[in-house]
Structure formats: structure tokens, C-alpha cells
């Protein structure tokens, strides 16, 4: 029973990951793709969380943390790059 509920969670997460990929492929502007990839990263964290419960292992805890950081940093870097063509600008806020 408990495992079945976790499987349902996995299926729902797979659907939502697929929707994110659809938007990333389709998106009319580049920024739509950035939003879709950001949300893809967040959903991936949840997916791995369920897998941690199913396999009853603590080994992916660091993976989850690093994925969260990477999703944030990569979407911010992409957005800044699209804004002016530079990622780190020193003389403005």
C-alpha cells in the first residue's frame, strides 16, 4: 500500500516533468525556456526525494542539495546572460 502511494507520486512527478520539457521545447521566447528549466530542476528534486523513500537510502541527500543549488545558479546565470551578454557585471547592481 505504502509503496503503491509512492509509485503514484512518481507517476505524477513524471507527468509534470514531461510538461516542463514540453514548455522548454515549445516556448516562444528564450525566457520561457529558462523558466521551464528552472521548474524542471525543482521537480527533479522532488522526484529524487520519492526515490529516496522507495529505496530507503540516505545516500541521495547531498544530490538533492546540490541539485537545488545548481538549478538556482544556472537559471540566474542564464537570465543574466540573456539580459546583457555578461554573467558577472562589476560596476552595476
Amino acid at each position: 500500500m505504502f509503496e503503491a502511494i509512492m509509485q503514484v507520486g512518481l507517476i505524477i512527478f513524471s507527468i509534470s516533468l514531461a510538461l516542463c520539457v514540453w514548455r522548454a521545447l515549445k516556448g516562444p521566447t528564450l525566457w520561457d525556456r529558462v523558466v521551464a528549466l528552472d521548474s524542471f530542476g525543482l521537480n527533479l528534486i522532488g522526484f529524487i526525494g520519492i526515490i529516496m523513500i522507495l529505496q530507503s537510502t540516505n545516500a541521495f541527500a547531498e544530490v538533492v542539495l546540490v541539485l537545488g543549488i545548481l538549478a538556482f545558479v544556472s537559471s540566474v546565470a542564464l537570465a543574466k546572460f540573456l539580459e546583457r551578454g555578461v554573467v558577472i557585471d562589476r560596476d552595476s547592481h
Binding site: I12, A36, S39
Partner: peptide, 8 residues
């Protein structure tokens, strides 16, 4: 999460 993706 599904609601979020549907919204996107």
C-alpha cells in the same frame, strides 16, 4: 508540482 507545471 503538477499544478505548477500545468500552470507553466
Amino acid at each position: 508540482s503538477l499544478i505548477g507545471s500545468l500552470g507553466i
